[in-house]
Simulated scan of single mutants.
Amino acid sequence: MRTLCEYKEVKVEELNIQPDHRCLVCSLTLKVSISDFKGILKGKTAIMVCKN
């Protein structure tokens, strides 16, 4: 998740990962919209969960 945030130039303020839950507080730049970043993040994490 941190790698994806760095790639999209998103600053991670707080990150808490549990086996069944993830909490992420971040600061976005004007280059990416909230809905676009949310979609990218949900898609990538779903792929990671399915691979494991």
Rank of each mutant, 00 (worst) to 15 (best):
M1S: 09
M1H: 08
M1T: 10
M1W: 03
R2Q: 13
R2G: 13
R2D: 09
R2F: 02
T3E: 13
L4C: 01
L4G: 00
C5V: 00
E6H: 13
E6D: 14
E6K: 14
Y7C: 12
Y7E: 15
Y7L: 13
Y7M: 13
K8Q: 11
K8N: 11
E9H: 09
V10Q: 02
V10I: 10
V10P: 11
V10H: 01
V10T: 03
K11Q: 06
V12L: 12
V12I: 15
E13V: 14
E13H: 06
E13N: 05
E13T: 07
E13C: 06
E14T: 06
E14A: 09
E14K: 08
E14N: 08
E14L: 10
L15T: 02
N16C: 08
N16P: 02
N16A: 04
I17M: 03
I17D: 09
I17A: 02
I17N: 02
Q18K: 01
Q18G: 03
Q18M: 01
Q18T: 04
P19Q: 07
P19Y: 04
D20H: 09
D20I: 00
D20E: 15
D20Q: 09
H21N: 08
H21R: 08
H21Q: 10
H21A: 03
H21V: 02
H21F: 07
H21W: 07
R22E: 01
R22F: 03
R22Q: 02
R22I: 02
R22N: 00
R22L: 00
C23T: 05
L24M: 13
V25K: 06
V25H: 03
C26W: 10
C26S: 12
S27G: 05
S27W: 04
S27P: 01
L28Y: 08
L28D: 09
L28F: 13
T29K: 05
L30S: 14
L30E: 10
L30R: 04
K31F: 11
K31E: 14
V32A: 11
V32W: 14
V32Q: 07
S33A: 06
I34C: 08
S35N: 07
S35V: 15
D36Y: 15
D36I: 14
D36T: 14
D36P: 10
F37M: 13
G39D: 12
I40W: 12
I40C: 04
L41Q: 04
L41K: 00
L41D: 02
L41M: 12
K42F: 05
G43T: 06
G43V: 01
T45W: 06
T45H: 04
A46P: 00
A46R: 12
V49H: 11
C50V: 08
C50W: 13
C50S: 13
K51T: 06
K51G: 00
K51V: 03
N52G: 08
